[in-house]
Design a binder for these strands. Structure first.
Lengths: 142, 142
DNA sequence: AATTATAGTTGACATTATCAATTACATTGC
DNA sequence: GCAATGTAATTGATAATGTCAACTATAATT
């Protein structure tokens, strides 16, 4: 069960979290996926924000970002503004209805976070995050 | 960056780990995916093992397990034996070539684990696993 | 014996992800 | 200034993972 040298506990957490995020997305009633929601949060936080910013933050292919962004534009949650420094690029901006969605996301997010960490101390949580960062850096440093 | 109340560090770890597992799978040169490899490990460890055992351990749909198992059978890595207690069900058994693969997997796995946790103490690692378990239980308990 | 439950399979489909090729613009070095 | 090279974004193709619903066959329950 508690195999010191196995990743099962992490795998199970990841899977449970994924399901949780899908349910979160459903609660928003706006037909978006978890990745769309992550992108909304990123655009809301980082201003100005380009597609490349999103791709590099998420460490994802630009192709995926383009498609996620397109859906968000179709749904009038974000808009593309010209990037004065680079005609190839655009600034992505949260619209009014996008802002309302981001507010909803924040509330639901807080609930999830609280549920997930309800019996953990601040120290345990930050320790968990510190170790997560170390491990991902170990994997990425190659 | 180090947002106390965000899951970004975990998300990044998950993504880095996923990439790592794909590379592991490629190293095996047997055209299997990370999930196939997880299933091989499960069948090897749990004897006897049925498809339902795998589904419940992975918390995955039976449909997915059926397909993963079928690929492994096609590649002669596991075989289906009759389950004497239930004619609907089968015992899944690692074949000879499957056993050789499992051995290779173990080696590559150990390398990954070492790389990922190289600057972590035993205590940190087990703390990480303890917290992971707690969080996934929190999410699953509903 | 009839009803209900379970093991496994199959088909359809959504989400996430990557790669390669392309277009348009930007930057660098001559 | 201009050629070469690099970068932002898009599009098409495709793979891996995951879920749901419907189904068959067998098991368990009443």
């Amino acid at each position: 069960m508690s195999d010191r040298k196995s990743l099962e506990s992490l795998f199970h957490l990841v899977h449970a979290l994924k399901r949780q995020l899908f349910e979160q997305a459903e609660q928003l009633n706006v037909n978006l996926t978890p990745m769309h929601i992550r992108v909304m949060k990123i655009i809301d936080r980082k201003k100005p924000c380009t597609a490349i910013d999103i791709a590099s933050f998420l460490r994802r292919d630009k192709a995926q970002v383009t498609r996620l962004v397109n859906t968000l534009i179709e749904k009038d949650l974000i808009s593309k503004e010209p990037n004065p420094n680079d005609k190839r690029s655009h600034y992505l901006c949260v619209t009014e209805s996008g802002t309302r969605l981001v507010d909803e996301i924040a509330k639901i997010d807080a609930n999830t976070m609280q549920m997930m960490t309800k019996n953990l101390s601040e120290e345990e949580l930050s320790e968990f995050q510190r170790i997560s960062s170390l491990m991902s850096k170990n994997l990425e440093a190659r």
